[in-house]
Design a protein around this nucleic acid. Structure first.
Length: 411
RNA sequence: GCCAGGGUGGGGUAGUUGGUUAUCCUAGGGGACUGUGGAUCCCCCGACCCGGGUUCGAGUCUCGGCCCUGGCCCCA
C-alpha cells in the first residue's frame, strides 16, 4: 500500500473542523487589530532563503530544479516571502503595513512530536514602523492570538541590546559561540571560553544577565547602553497594558537579522518542541533589494498549538436528514433546498431504501428527520421528527424550518 | 544525521518453546424489510510494514530497509 510521505499527515473532517475553528479564531483576532491577509507562493527561488539564513539551511529544505533549470525551494517559513513581496509590490503602500498570513511550510527534518515536514504557521508582519509602540503591539497581538487558541502558555520577551552591550568587544565569531554556550546553559564552557579570550570578567555578568528577570537588574548589569530609554519604554508599555510576560534577556534567537526586541512563547505539555511562537524586530527588506525598512513580526506554530490544545469538542451544528418515498422525490428535493437556503445542514438520503431504513440510517447522526412521502407531497407539508425526543408533527415547510432554527439557537 | 522503544484488517486487540484455514471487539458494506428509530437475523469486506536469510515450516528467530512514537542535534 502506498504511504504518505514521511512527516506529513492526513486530516479527517473531525480534525479539520478543530483546525479551522482555531484558524478562524486567529483570523478574527488579527482582523480586529487591523491586520490583513497576504498570500505568497508555496515555492520561491532558493536564493531568497539562503540570502536570509545562509547556505547551511539547504540541508533542511526541499530544494529542487524546475524544467527551466531554476533553483527553487518549498518555503521553510514565510517571513522572507512576505518581505520579498513587500519589496516587489508593496513598497508604495502607506506605512505601516499590517499583514498576516496562514500558510503551510516545509522543512526536511526528523519528525517528532510537534514537528512535521509539512506544517502550518500563522504569522504577522508589521512593516515600516520602528517604535516601541509597534513592538508592543506585535507582542500584544501574539498574546491575543495564542489566548484565543485556547492554550496555556508563557511569553518571554527579551532584547538583543542587553547581550550586545556585554559582547560588543568580542569578534563576531566569538559572539556567536558565546550565544550558543549561553543558550545551552553551559556556564563552565562559557567561563573557560571567555578566559581564553582574556575576558574572564564577562562570564559572571553574562550568566547573571541571562538569569535576570527584572529590567532594572538587567540594566544594572549592562550599565549604560545605547537604546536604553527605548527598551525602558517598550517594557513600560507592556506593564501598563497588563501583558503577562517574563523578561528574558537570554533570548538570542540565533539569527543575525533580528535587531532589537525578540520574544518567544512556550506551551505546556508539548515535550521537547514546546515553543509555539517566536519573533521580534528585524531588518530584511534591504537584503532583497529594497530600502532598509524596519519590521517586526512573529510566527505561531499552528500544529504545536493544536497539539497543546488537545481535543476540545466543538458544538456540532444541528443536522437534518431527509427521508423520502420514491413517489415524493421532487417535493423532498424542494424541501431539502429550502432548509439549506435557511442555513441548515441538510443531508438527503440517497439510498432509495424503505422509509424505515432511511430513518434508521438518519438517526445515527442527525438531530431531526424530515419524512416526505406521498401524503406530504400532496399537502405540500413535511413531517418533522425530533430524533432525540422521538416526537413528530406534520408542519408546513416554513413552520418546520422555524422549529429547527429555534432549536439551533437554543444550543 | 544520532539514541531508545515500537509496527497484526479502518480503529482496538489475542496469538504459548516456530506448527492447520490467524482470535475477539468495533467500524464499514450488502441482503431480508416500501410510511417511521440506532433493533434482529444472515452475508460480505478487510491485517501479520517491505525485502533477504535460517527452517520441512516464520506473525513468532535473524539481517537490512521503510514508517511511527519519544529524546538528541537543529530550529529560519
Amino acid at each position: 500500500m502506498l504511504q504518505r510521505p514521511r512527516g506529513t499527515r492526513d486530516f479527517l473532517p473531525a480534525e479539520m473542523e478543530q483546525r479551522r475553528s482555531v484558524e478562524n479564531a486567529m483570523r478574527r483576532i488579527a482582523h480586529t487589530w487591523g491586520y490583513r491577509e497576504v498570500c505568497t507562493p508555496t515555492f520561491e527561488e532558493l536564493e531568497l532563503f539562503t540570502l536570509r539564513s545562509g547556505e547551511g539551511i539547504i540541508e533542511e529544505m526541499y530544494v529542487f530544479e524546475d524544467k527551466g533549470g531554476r533553483k527553487l525551494a518549498l518555503r521553510p517559513e514565510v517571513t522572507a516571502s512576505v518581505l520579498r513581496a513587500y519589496v516587489n509590490v508593496g513598497k508604495t503602500l502607506a506605512k505601516p503595513l499590517r499583514w498576516y498570513y496562514f500558510a503551510d511550510c516545509f522543512r526536511y527534518e526528523r519528525p517528532q512530536k510537534g514537528r512535521y515536514r509539512q506544517f502550518w504557521q500563522f504569522g504577522v508582519e508589521l512593516i515600516g514602523q520602528d517604535t516601541p509602540l509597534a513592538e508592543a503591539e506585535v507582542i500584544m497581538l501574539a498574546q491575543d492570538l495564542l489566548s484565543a487558541s485556547g492554550i496555556t502558555f508563557t511569553l518571554h520577551v527579551g532584547h538583543l541590546g542587553f547581550m550586545r552591550a556585554l559582547l560588543g568587544g568580542l569578534a563576531p565569531e566569538d559572539q556567536k559561540k558565546v550565544r550558543i554556550l549561553l543558550d545551552k546553559k553551559n556556564y563552565d564552557g562559557l567561563s573557560a571560553f571567555l578566559s581564553s579570550r582574556g575576558e574572564s570578567g564577562l562570564s559572571d555578568r553574562l550568566t547573571a544577565l541571562v538569569e535576570c528577570r527584572k529590567l532594572d537588574d538587567a540594566l544594572a548589569i549592562t550599565g549604560d547602553m545605547p537604546g536604553k530609554e527605548r527598551i525602558r519604554e517598550l517594557f513600560s508599555i507592556l506593564d501598563q497594558a497588563g501583558v503577562p510576560y517574563t523578561l528574558n534577556p537570554g533570548i538570542a534567537r540565533g539569527l543575525d537579522y533580528y535587531t532589537g526586541m525578540v520574544f518567544e512563547a512556550f506551551a505546556e505539555n508539548l515535550g521537547a518542541e514546546n515553543q509555539v511562537a517566536g519573533g521580534g524586530t528585524y531588518r530584511l527588506a534591504h537584503l532583497f533589494g529594497g530600502e532598509d525598512t524596519p519590521s517586526c513580526g512573529f510566527a505561531i506554530g499552528f500544529d504545536r498549538v493544536m497539539v497543546a490544545r488537545g481535543d476540545i469538542p466543538g458544538t456540532p451544528a444541528v443536522r437534518v436528514g431527509v427521508a423520502h418515498t420514491p413517489d415524493a422525490r421532487d417535493w423532498a428535493l424542494h424541501v431539502a433546498a429550502a432548509f439549506r437556503s435557511a442555513g441548515i445542514l441538510t443531508e438527503s438520503d440517497l439510498s432509495g431504501k424503505n422509509l424505515s431504513q432511511q430513518i434508521a440510517s438518519i438517526s445515527r447522526n442527525a438531530d431531526f428527520a424530515l419524512i416526505i412521502g406521498r401524503r406530504e407531497q400532496e399537502k405540500r407539508s413535511v413531517t418533522l421528527k425530533d430524533l432525540r425526543s422521538g416526537t413528530q408533527k406534520e408542519l408546513s415547510l416554513a413552520q418546520a424550518i422555524a422549529e429547527v432554527n429555534g432549536d439551533d439557537s437554543c444550543r
